[in-house]
Design a protein around this nucleic acid. Structure first.
Lengths: 189, 189
DNA sequence: ATCATTTGCCTAAAAACTTTAGGCAAATGC
DNA sequence: GCATTTGCCTAAAGTTTTTAGGCAAATGAT
């Protein structure tokens, strides 16, 4: 009986790869066990249950996204920063569709609190420092940017913008132009 | 042996109710059979498979949403129309979270073609008639509005905006003000 | 009204996934 | 070298999906 060296870390990591290959909803404890050439029950020493695995993948994706965002924002401000962060989300979703889907998982309040969620809103707030917004408008703008990034990326991932002109990249650029213009000229109530 | 009168219609309808009650991913052929107090295999005379049920719920939700949208747009134009359609999505998601989740299901190309998807983009285009946009900017704007509506509603549904000031309704209003301003002043490339 | 046909829900059964319980052997530590 | 811990195992029960074939109820023709 050879020990493969399973750990929660490795399982979550492999689960994330599996998600990118076959889709997040196809990620199962059984499939993961097959991938390690190990019996299913063995995974339950490292995972509480299958939900635990999915939550782990979601948290991993949120961390990776936040790391990429932080790297992209370093040394940038204003529209430059806006575009950089927006592209982090879009590119990550394109590279890692399964992980991106995982990041959309409805987390329990505890898991959400332990997640990189707050790093994400902090990054968006950082971008807004380049614009002239004060509270509560800044919060409104944080929510708008989150909505556009997430909404656009998930519609694009769902194939909503393919097979029709103009191409998606063109729209993306123009939408970011639009958001920049809007943030520079945020209407009073 | 009493006949319950199962039909694909009734099953999809009940599946939609189930989705709203327990969440779309908890919708299963077994659960549906229990709800009708009928054996599971009996449903397979009316449903090709479990994916078929989910697709049916998604198509139902897209139709219902399009119907509500059409009703809301009747007799409205400009910002008034924008707000009306936006609220259709938001209110529908609040009333029918399971159906709304279903509407996000990745459809096969055939199912997508048979869906109310095109009605949705047509409605958004109708709104833009009140603004001064020509192609391809109109398409960019259609995609922006779709992204914001979908993005905001799903983040809100995921609980992203609860438990923090300002409240979600306030942000929603201000975002729609912002979109209206942006559409009236869409930046050139 | 009777009989044939169709239809609707049934039982049975196989395959896949989830999860728990308990066991043995390998790794670890004294 | 031995005791303990740890890691992966077998076994087994429960749930879901899906197919195949059967019987009874509804439908419709004579």
């Amino acid at each position: 009986m050879v020990r493969v060296g399973l750990t929660t870390e490795r399982l979550v990591q492999a689960g994330a790869e599996l998600a990118d290959e076959v889709g997040f909803d196809q990620v199962t404890v059984s499939a993961l066990a097959r991938r390690f050439d190990v019996k299913v029950a063995s995974l339950y020493s490292h995972l509480k249950n299958s939900q635990d695995l999915k939550t782990g993948i979601a948290l991993l994706a949120l961390e990776e996204l936040a790391d990429r965002g932080a790297a992209a924002l370093a040394g940038r401000a204003g529209k430059d920063a806006l575009i950089a962060l927006a592209n982090v989300y879009r590119d990550y979703a394109a590279e890692h569709p399964g992980r991106y889907a995982a990041a959309q998982l409805r987390l329990t309040p505890e898991a959400a609190a332990a997640s990189a969620g707050s790093r994400h809103s902090q990054m968006t707030r950082a971008i807004l420092r380049g614009y002239d917004l004060t509270e509560p408008d800044q919060t409104h703008a944080v929510r708008l940017l989150g909505s556009v990034f997430h909404g656009y990326v998930s519609l694009e991932l769902a194939g909503g913008f393919s097979h029709s002109a103009p191409d998606s990249q063109e729209t993306w650029t123009r939408i970011l132009d639009g958001l920049d213009a809007l943030l520079r000229n945020w209407p009073a109530p």
